[in-house]
Write a protein that binds this DNA or RNA. Sequence first.
DNA 1: GTCTATATTCAGATAGAC
DNA 2: GTCTATCTGAATATAGAC
Lengths: 192, 192
Amino acid sequence: MKVTTKKEDFLQASLELIHEKGFKATTMRDIADRMGFDVSNSYNYIKSKQDILEFFLFRTSEEFHAAMNDILASSYPADEKLKQVISAHIKVAAKKPFEVALMVNEWRNLKEPKYTEYIRLRDLYERKMIQLLQEGVQTKVFKDMDVHIATAVILSSIRWLYTAYADKSEAELNPIELERQIVGLVFNGVLV
Amino acid sequence: MKVTTKKEDFLQASLELIHEKGFKATTMRDIADRMGFDVSNSYNYIKSKQDILEFFLFRTSEEFHAAMNDILASSYPADEKLKQVISAHIKVAAKKPFEVALMVNEWRNLKEPKYTEYIRLRDLYERKMIQLLQEGVQTKVFKDMDVHIATAVILSSIRWLYTAYADKSEAELNPIELERQIVGLVFNGVLV
DNA sequence: GTCTATATTCAGATAGAC
DNA sequence: GTCTATCTGAATATAGAC
């Protein structure tokens, strides 16, 4: 079994509560209650409530960027690269659904200068995706299309993935089949 | 020029502020400041802060449902129906970007019983979309696919649309070209 | 690490005068 | 419809004792 420090437990409890109620609606008291101690103890583990948000957002963002960088630096053709990006998103969403939920829903609650810093990372990620699609268009692997719109559509189309794994109620989705279906749609669309 | 009541002005100011700062972060004082009067006056127009959220969320939800119902009740084949759903989403996003932003970002701030009521409307809308795709698969217009996953992917893929119209900074997107690009992707994917 | 106590600030909402 | 004044509650965060 996994050994966790109390700080890790505290952050995990925070993460789950924020996912359930939202960042603003989650109070330090809520988190302390779930940990079974008084609010004031929370400040043994963090300096401020903002710290919790920053910790998860930047850590998970880094994970996405690392995967994207490896994929872009490979010699695969663009279609295989795109498939691997989709695959990476499914893997992260399946392994860390609450972290991804935070990225999707709570980044607006960051305060300056972290807010601007985070936006920059998001924009950078988007630009890497645009680059990938552009490469595919130039090599005639992808059709001629507006790569900016296509990037927005594709990134948006996989943004719901965390919900499939965050809610235990959902039937456990087979990640392999999920990837097959999504790649099928992104590559060839819905028409026969 | 358009004649507006002061209540309409108040709600519009609320809408824009909530879009800028988020619902929880927007205070009644913020809204009153923008209107140029004291907080207490706000309660001439609404009973509570929740009212603002409920008003916009349910009104815009109704708009989406009405469009979807008309499309489903038509005798068009499934591919044309799907195209019209996409077209409707673009139209609403272009005309009411802040309202759509609220639907995407702030529905979690509804309180019971409105929260449950709203979730039901969302689920209903999703089921209508599943029905549309199922019809297309049965009539061999769409390929054989997991219609639940396809519904999640397609609805998610057009969820970003409001951002293209909410931020004035973005170059004004031509809705006709936007529709052409998105329909092209949803129908045939990115491959040549 | 845990507690009690408290400082500080700020939010939603109401009462009542003009 | 507008204001002043105020109630009530709640939140983040800190100080200091055990």
